[in-house]
Write a protein that binds this DNA or RNA. Structure first.
Length: 377
DNA sequence: AAGAAAGCCAACCGCGCTCCT
DNA sequence: TAGGAGCGCGGTTGGCTTTCT
């Protein structure tokens, strides 16, 4: 049984608002306010509109100080930065842009900005580089495994980047036990599989047996104290997102990160939105999966390349926009896999952290340690 | 000049969350 | 504590406009 409709659909007008309707609504709200009840409002003022429609019309068009028209370069940058940081939280993004509505920003992003930022050429570069990185990492993992390497030396929280599940599993997955804080190697395929499911992989309905709440393999850790060789190894292995005011400069746990993007029934975090890792079971989607699994760790603020790389991100975007590269990108060529860009966002957990951060610090940086992710190197 | 395709954006839809009873 | 009502949000749709062929 579905939810009861908020209004009598048969007796409400749909479609564009007339100037008269606008005037009626505006005059009433300016004089009396909304009265705290949008559902009842249209009846009060004699509009044959759904209360939700009135609310939307007021918020997106009629209320004072709404800014219409072109977005500035500065606004573009803010939107991009926040989208990368927090994803499609349009209301939060809109809160940073006075006069802009979430709907406006959403439309602007969907129709223009995202095309501006990414293109086919980049995707191809990304594919090549990602394959190379995954391959070298896998070899490194095998080497370490064969030599009986002590994975305790690895930075805590490391997840093998062998990203694509079937048909072969990673050789081994170094993890830190959440309870004991002891490093451990996970070699058992079922365990690894469950772990990856937990981290966000979706393989098939039959295979989903874990929930997002039962096990915790990882916990936040400061990698700044890791040895330089490990640091390098790590750096070559993962992508990095950072929040400059993350508590204690800690890495966020991968499970924390993934659990908010996935649930075992594939219900997503809300409505019908795809989960972050949707597509991992697609055999043609190796590249995308590469990226998803390589993003499971978040550093603190001491990573050296962050500003430079964020700058690179924007430079790349501008280059695309200006068409100033030798290989200009046409709009037709700009079709992209949105798994790529959607995978850039923080988890809900991180968003709340971000929101906390935001109260303390004016900016939040997102960073990608491997800027090859964007083909920017 | 006309039809097709693409771009754009206002509005709708449905779900999760919160508040209230 | 449970259930209902309303709110807020993000995804999607549909229709108008602009550009392309």
């Amino acid at each position: 049984m579905g939810r009861a409709p908020c209004c009598d659909k048969a007796n409400v007008k749909k479609g564009p608002w007339s100037p008269e309707e606008d005037a009626t609504l505006k005059a009433y709200i300016e004089k009396h306010g909304t009265g705290g009840n949008w559902i009842a409002l249209p009846q009060k003022i004699g509009l044959k509109r759904c209360g939700k429609s009135c609310r939307l019309r007021w918020l997106n068009y009629l209320r004072p100080n709404i800014k219409h028209g072109a977005f500035s370069e500065e606004e573009d940058n803010i939107i991009c930065s926040l989208y990368i940081s927090i994803g499609s939280r349009w209301s939060i993004i809109a809160a940073q842009l006075p006069g802009r509505t979430d709907n406006d920003i959403k439309n602007y992003w969907n129709t223009r900005l995202k095309k501006k930022l990414l293109g086919k050429q980049r995707k191809q570069q990304q594919a090549q580089q990602s394959r190379r990185a995954a391959s070298s990492l896998k070899q490194e993992m095998i080497k370490r495994s064969e030599s009986g390497a002590n994975f305790a030396n690895l930075p805590v929280g490391f997840v093998t980047q062998n990203p694509y599940w079937a048909p072969e599993l990673p050789v081994a997955v170094p993890m830190v036990n959440y309870q004991t804080h002891e490093p451990q190697l996970i070699k058992d395929q079922a365990s690894i599989k469950n772990m990856l499911i937990k981290l966000g992989g979706r393989f098939s309905a039959d295979n989903i047996t874990t929930t997002t709440t039962n096990t915790n393999f990882l916990y936040p850790v400061d990698i700044s104290s890791s040895s330089s060789s490990d640091h390098q190894f790590y750096q070559n292995s993962i992508d990095v997102l950072t929040c400059t005011s993350a508590p204690n400069n800690n890495i966020y746990a991968a499970d924390q990160f993934a659990s908010t993007h996935y649930d075992a029934n594939n219900n997503g975090g809300g409505s019908s939105s795809p989960t972050m890792f949707q597509g991992l079971d697609d055999h043609n989607n190796n590249l995308q999966a590469d990226h998803h699994l390589s993003e499971l760790v978040v550093y603190g603020n001491d990573f050296p390349h962050q500003h430079q790389q964020l700058d690179g991100f924007y430079q790349g975007a501008e280059t695309l926009n200006n068409g100033s590269t030798g290989t200009s990108t046409t709009s037709a060529e700009s079709e992209i896999s949105w798994g790529d860009i959607n995978s850039l966002v923080y988890s809900t957990q991180m968003v709340s952290d971000y929101e906390t951060c935001q109260q303390r610090m004016p900016t939040v940086h997102s960073v990608f340690a491997e800027s090859t992710y964007f083909g920017l190197k």
